[in-house]
Design a protein around this nucleic acid. Structure first.
Length: 661
DNA sequence: CTAGGGTTAG
């Protein structure tokens, strides 16, 4: 008891003596209340705490400012609260002013000059601001005056400068400061400085330099490792990333995630999922960022089983409410062929952004639901979310698939005028595609030849594809000649051109293209079809592949469907075989196309009534398209086929693509 | 103060 009383007395005395001026008024009031009880009395430690709270509150508000006006208001509050000498808050103020591109020489400089005792952080904020605004000389002069005033640079000075360099991607400037660091003495051995330095080199694409800093650092932490791992992953070098990861003594969640997303970004979805499972087995937690990596991997795999698994994981963890996770899920379900589930995710999202809308619009377009895509676009522009270039690629392809030429034209014209999105080559490709598919090949060609942006392979490819649909070998030749220049090794272009010639019966030209391919050493990549069998096992089929264990049953099923289809008036489309062989042989070849084998296999192995999903790596041929339409009616099942990147939903004898593909 | 994230075309 006695000890407690003494302690209380001590505290009371101290607080009266050491109270700062700003609070004298408050303390005066306390002095004139000699009978202050414990409830009305505010000790100094608490005042200090209040001040700290106020400071951090102001910093949070500053952080959330969206424009200069808001910042100015907070500045007024800072002055009102007597914090015009508080380096901590003013540092944040200057950083925000720099972020909103207020010229350093004006407002921020004024704030800085009014502070009497400036700490290195305040200096750094100003120097960094000048750097970000491209005034290298001013920032160096300032650095000099800072040293003259006897302020030693802290490690933060350098890490802030490196961060500024990585933000403006100026690696030569970064190198100069790196040299400075070494001159001043040993700051690169500081963990923070070293890490920011690595990050700068990595972000600027100088992986070698980053590695050198890493190797020379006397002390590294998991952040140093992860920066480099992510750098290798971004550069597409997963082998180096994996080698580094293996040597990492303490692997945390972020490091694991870097590997998962690295594999996902480099088109190795299987590896990504494998790492995710290893990560879970190691007892590492996962968060929203990890999930996004796995979801993107599942989208690439296109396997429904994995898609549902990862969606449940997201639901269980609660991260399903994260916008990025939601948008990734939309994309995944679209790419797995279940656009309904994609829309379900979209509907349930609490927050949406341009990615969510674009992914959903692209998803609808991919599945031939062009009207749904356009409707969603119109809903989107009613919100304050602005469409971007990807959104327009989505709506334009939607128009193209529905044959909505006029609507597409209007949207294209509105891009820049109403939404400030300048049409890029991609958008011209969409327009060339739109006109070409609609049969307006001359207009399409003219657009490709006169467009103000340099046409890329996508533009000529769209035209070539349109020539294939409408059988125009002359315009095809023009498109192909551009493509052969832009993509000399693009095997698909040679094949499409030769198919167009075959369709027109120009067999001499066909063999000319074939010889060209041979001379270039290009080989046709075979068309595959995949079906997810029981327990999520993926079965692969190639045309004319009779090695499958159920081959004879598959043939039996196909013959059965063929007979019933023929009874309904189906005729095999022999022009789909671009070879100069007999009609019987053509008919036989048609029946061994991989998607037909896959269909028969799926009928043998899946239960009646459930949707059959087939994934392909090349475009579905016209005969298979008609065949699938008929088959969906005869077997009374929905058949979903993904060719290259588009989905066909065959139901009751009709396809969702409306024969526009 | 430092590390890992999503949408696009033939």
């Amino acid at each position: 008891m006695r000890a407690l009383t003494i302690a209380r007395e001590f505290l009371t005395t101290r607080s009266l003596i050491y109270a700062p001026k700003q609070f004298s008024q408050q303390l005066q009031q306390q002095r004139h209340q000699p009978k202050a009880t414990e409830e009305t009395y505010v000790p100094f430690s608490q005042l200090q705490q209040q001040r700290k709270l106020l400071e951090s509150e102001l910093i949070t508000i500053l952080d959330g400012c969206n424009d200069l006006h808001q910042i100015k208001q907070v500045h007024a509050q800072i002055l009102y609260n007597g914090l015009n000498q508080c380096c901590y808050v003013l540092t944040k103020l200057i950083r925000m002013l720099a972020k909103f591109n207020v010229p350093m020489e004006t407002y921020p400089r004024l704030v800085f000059d009014q502070v009497r005792y400036r700490n290195p952080f305040l200096w750094t904020a100003l120097i960094r601001g000048y750097l970000l605004q491209g005034s290298l000389r001013d920032s160096i002069v300032l650095y000099g005056s800072m040293r003259k005033e006897g302020i030693d640079p802290v490690s933060f000075t350098f890490s802030a400068l490196f961060k500024a360099c990585s933000e403006v991607l100026d690696v030569s400037l970064g190198r100069q400061i790196h040299a400075q660091t070494i001159l001043v003495g040993g700051f690169t051995s500081d963990l923070y400085v070293g890490n920011t330095l690595i990050d700068m080199y990595v972000k600027c694409g100088c992986l070698g330099c980053g590695r050198k800093v890493f190797d020379e650092m006397p002390e590294k932490d998991v952040i140093s490792w992860t920066e480099l791992i992510a750098g290798y992953a971004k550069g597409g070098d997963m082998e180096s990333a994996a080698a580094l990861f293996d040597g990492l003594p303490l692997k945390d969640m972020v490091a694991w995630t870097a590997m998962v997303t690295g594999y996902a970004q480099n088109a190795m979805p299987g590896k990504a999922i494998q790492y995710f499972e290893r990560m879970q087995n190691a007892g590492i937690e996962t968060d929203d960022v990890t999930l996004v990596g796995v979801i993107s991997a599942c989208a690439q795999l296109g396997a429904v089983k994995y898609a549902n698994w990862v969606c449940h994981t997201a639901e269980r963890s609660g991260f399903i409410n994260n916008v990025v996770v939601g948008s990734a899920l939309i994309d995944m379900y679209s790419k797995c062929g279940i656009v309904e589930d994609a829309y379900r995710v979209f509907e349930r999202m609490k927050e949406r952004n341009v990615y969510s809308y674009s992914s959903m619009i692209v998803g609808f377009a991919m599945h031939g639901q062009g009207h749904a895509a356009l409707k969603l676009f119109h809903e989107m522009v009613e919100t304050d979310i602005r469409p971007n270039r990807v959104t327009f690629v989505g709506v334009l392809t939607a128009c193209s698939h529905m044959g909505l030429v006029e609507q597409g034209r209007q949207l294209f014209a509105s891009m820049e005028k109403c939404y400030g999105v300048a049409p890029a080559a991609d958008h011209y490709a969409c327009m060339v595609d739109l006109l070409g598919r609609a049969g307006r090949l001359e207009e399409s060609l003219e657009l490709a030849q006169t467009m103000p942006v340099d046409p890329h392979a996508g533009v000529w490819g769209a035209l070539l594809g349109a020539c294939h649909i409408h059988g125009n070998p002359d315009i095809a030749q023009i498109a192909a000649s551009h493509l052969f220049e832009l993509e000399p090794d693009g095997i698909g272009n040679y094949i499409v051109l030769s198919n167009i010639y075959a369709l027109a019966g120009r067999w001499d030209d066909v063999s000319r293209v074939r010889k060209l391919m041979k001379r270039k050493g290009l080989k046709k990549n075979p068309g595959y079809s995949w079906v997810e069998g029981k327990n999520g096992v993926i079965h692969e089929f190639v045309a004319n592949d009779l090695t499958h264990s159920k081959s004879s049953e598959i043939r039996q099923v196909l013959e059965d469907i063929l007979d019933r289809l023929k009874a309904h008036g189906y005729q095999p489309n022999l022009s789909c075989v671009p070879r100069d062989v007999s009609d019987e042989e053509k008919e036989r070849i048609l029946m061994t196309h991989s998607e037909k084998l896959a269909l028969a296999f799926a009928m043998l192995t899946t239960s009646v009534g459930c949707t059959i999903r087939i994934m392909k790596n090349v475009r579905i041929c016209e005969d298979c398209h008609v065949f699938m339409c008929g088959a969906s009616q005869i077997i009374e099942r929905e058949i979903v086929v993904r060719d290259n990147m588009r989905f066909h939903h065959f139901r009751d004898g009709k396809c969702s693509c409306g024969n526009f593909w």
